[in-house]
Design a protein around this nucleic acid. Structure first.
Lengths: 152, 152
RNA sequence: UGACACCGGGUCGA
DNA sequence: TCGACCCGGTGTCA
């Protein structure tokens, strides 16, 4: 009986905001505590926002997971918007037809709905990590995303 | 009829930041294009910041000007904080009760207010010069300030 | 009002 | 290469 865990470290970068942006997700698979696989996905857009890139990073990372994956998947992001959105706010938004307290519409609804959909059937936990605070996995994706955005 | 101009070259230095720091201002008076007087003021503090020293340099330089001086006074600094602060940002800060766009308070408010006060009644123009870029007057005060800070 | 993130500019240093 | 002191902005939410 092996114990499998999956981690996805994500980050987005956006030069200009709005401007040219990139996202990166690094997926790691651990078996009984040892890393047995690591893969990276990335992408970008000419005209986007920092928050869209943060969300796309997580979306793309989760899309790489097989649909019948049973292991727990931990997604790490420094975006409180993303983590609190998925952990705390989504139910309220769905209940109120994607309207915020002030009556205006939640932004990037398509991305939120795609994230909800891609989690279906998986065991996903969302974890916030403070940016630029010494977390090496976060620094890695942060650096990769910035370089990628610069090169667009 | 003589044409009088005054220039003040200022710089601050801070070893450690925060740490021990010094400031220097060199005041020159020109009559019909020829330098007729040059004076230097300086000072320091045991525990301060680079920006406080940049501001104190300008403050001390302007305090040496007689209150009824009619000539135009040009203050040269390599600190964009100081020059843009005085040229562009002060009106907005006063309007918003010394709060920045993000809601937090502007730092070193006492020094900003002292600078505003010392300019009252004088004709002061603030000029930014890029640091370490060959401007001899700037290099002079830069060197003096560093030596002075070292000796504190 | 608060929080997080994404950028830009300048200076001071180690 | 690294960090600290300072400012400007936008993207987003409670």
């Amino acid at each position: 009986m092996t114990n499998t865990k999956i981690t996805i470290h994500t980050d987005g970068s956006c030069i200009g905001n709005p401007g040219k942006g990139a996202w990166v997700a690094v997926i790691r698979r651990y078996q009984d505590g040892v890393e047995v696989k690591k893969s990276t996905v990335s992408g970008g857009a000419r005209q986007t926002t920092n928050n869209q890139m943060e969300m796309r990073a997580a979306l793309a990372g989760l899309q790489k997971i097989k649909r019948d994956e049973r292991a727990t998947i931990r997604v790490y992001s420094d975006s409180q918007l993303l983590v609190k959105g998925m952990n705390d706010w989504v139910p309220g938004w769905q209940r109120k037809n994607w309207r915020k307290a002030d009556g205006s519409l939640v932004k990037n609804r398509e991305l939120w709905e795609a994230l909800i959909a891609v989690c279906d059937g998986l065991s996903v936990q969302w974890e916030w990590v403070r940016g630029h605070d010494g977390d090496l996995r976060n620094e890695e994706v942060d650096g990769l995303a910035f370089v990628k955005a610069s090169q667009l």
